[in-house]
């Protein structure tokens, strides 16, 4: 191999590795869906996952939404004033929060909180032989660990996005009314009149997809964790990075699908 072909070989190796990883993740996702529709289903683990992933993520998703809505209102007001469009603050805040920032930022926060904890928990279970113990106790690890978490995240995330939407709009409203001299009734009326059902609905669908991605990445990297503390640390880091990148990439694809002219 000479100096000319070596970079090409490296590039080819990187592409093949990436495709192989994509294949492994796709097979894992397929296996998760296959186990989802076949009994047994572990309700207790599902409800526990709903609590951990959905309910306990509410504070972080809520605070993210409030501050994002508030900052968005200030930015739109400052930017809009350059061409006398300050009055569109309520509409743009509502649109930005429901279609994009609510689902994407909420999902990124959930990825940081949930993908990491799932990967660390399952990774630790793997290195301490708890996954092997599950198998010897006639319990399939995919059914017991992956399916409840993925389903809980897929169903919880739209609810978190809905709460985030409301709080994000409220954040914008607070800034609009207290700092930007909007009349309360005008702000609310403009928001309500402008928003369409699909603005909110598309964000909820995105939320479900992002929830699936977050839990799937947590479980995948946890199940494939290396040995020892370093292996679990690596799995946790990879889960958060992969979930975050996939959220942003799938957000673009879904936006193309839903709103491309």
């Amino acid at each position: 191999m000479n100096a000319l072909t070596r970079p090409l070989a490296h590039l080819g190796h990187a592409v093949l590795s990436a495709l192989a990883a994509l294949g492994r993740v796709s097979r894992f996702a397929g296996a998760t869906l296959a186990h989802l529709v076949r009994p047994p289903f572990y309700w207790r683990e599902f409800l526990h996952a709903c609590l951990q992933i959905g309910w306990l993520s509410l504070p972080v998703v809520g605070m993210t939404a409030v501050f994002t809505g508030a900052a968005l209102a200030l930015q739109i007001y400052a930017g809009g004033s350059r061409f006398n469009a300050e009055s569109v603050v309520p509409q743009i805040v509502a649109l930005g929060i429901t279609r994009e920032l609510g689902p994407v930022l909420g999902a990124l926060m959930v990825a940081a909180r949930v993908a990491s904890s799932i990967a660390a928990e399952i990774g630790t279970m793997k290195v301490t032989e708890q996954i092997d113990a599950l198998t010897t106790l006639s319990t399939h690890p995919m059914k017991y660990l992956t399916v409840p978490r993925v389903l809980a995240a897929t169903l919880s995330m739209p609810l978190l996005v809905a709460v985030g939407d409301a709080l994000g709009i409220w954040g914008g409203y607070l800034v609009g009314v207290t700092r930007l001299d909007f009349a309360s009734s005008t702000y609310l009326a403009n928001t309500a009149d402008f928003l369409e059902v699909w603005d909110v609905g598309s964000g909820l669908v995105k939320g479900a997809v992002f929830g699936f991605v977050v839990a799937l990445m947590g479980c995948y990297f946890g199940m494939n964790s290396g040995r020892g503390a370093q292996g679990v640390g690596g799995a946790t880091k990879s889960a958060v990075v992969a979930a975050s990148v996939l959220i942003l990439a799938s957000n673009y694809l879904l936006t193309e699908l839903f709103f491309a002219a």
């Binding site: 279970m125 301490t128 032989e129 708890q130 092997d132 113990a133 198998t135 010897t136 106790l137 006639s138």
Partner: peptide, 14 residues
């Protein structure tokens, strides 16, 4: 697997 029981080295308790 129902015919087997196993004690793991580190216990492997959940």
């Amino acid at each position: 697997l129902a015919r087997f029981g196993m004690l793991f080295q580190g216990g492997a308790l959940f």
